[in-house]
Amino acid sequence: MSTPVPPEPTPAIDVRGLSCGYDGRVVLKDITFSVRSGEIFFVIGGSGCGKSTLLRNLIGISTPLAGDVRFFGQPVSEHDAAARRALLKTFGVLYQSGALWSSLTLRQNVALPLEEYTSLSQPEILEIVALKLAQVGLTGFEDYYPSEISGGMKKRAGLARALALDPAIVFLDEPSAGLDPITSRRLDELVLQIREMFGTTIAVVSHELASIFSIADRVIMLDRGEKGIIASGDPKDLARGHRDPRVVEFLNRGDLPPQ
């Protein structure tokens, strides 16, 4: 008697036949991939290949031209208001610029999702906010406004806000862009720590090779010409010997390995 095969766990992110673009212009065509729960997953590719477009479609800011995106089996294009609200609690997003609300202090920025989605008392919210800001190394800056802190600090504060509701999935849009190598490395360590502590699924849009090689479990590479995925897998394996030279060249900073 054969051993029964355990059912495949529901992927954290499941993308099927997704096409997206702007004003009738197709940027990505019929792409399919899935991200396992607890995975650190990178979307990479050259400028203009559609990484940010893909992210906007994944998080529901833009409507796909075709296809389906699901988080833990729930469609992102949910139209029912209550279901949509429940879905929004399952993911957090760190935008490229941090996208902090400039009229609010860091404390208020991080507290807002908690005030909106939980029934916690104000002292409890403040405890969580202090913890989240401490986790990203911003203790002491709680009452600063975004205009009073540096770009790297804005990103970290944006990450604290994305983590406020302890979402199951966190999307990071170019988290290392514009950061010095030390801050960038600390951010990578923070990402690993979040995954380690909470088992969070982390999807990163980036072309920072140092981050890709140090924290990515798996990457997909997009290409502008192909309008789709040209490679998928462990970044180190892809860099060593993928059949497509574009992939190898990208992951080796433009240097093709000797034949």
Partner: peptide
Amino acid sequence: EKIRTLLAQLSVSHETSVPFDR
């Protein structure tokens, strides 16, 4: 261990997070 680590972080942030008087 994970929970104890996070509790320790929470305890530290509770002590060190002082409102900034403007």
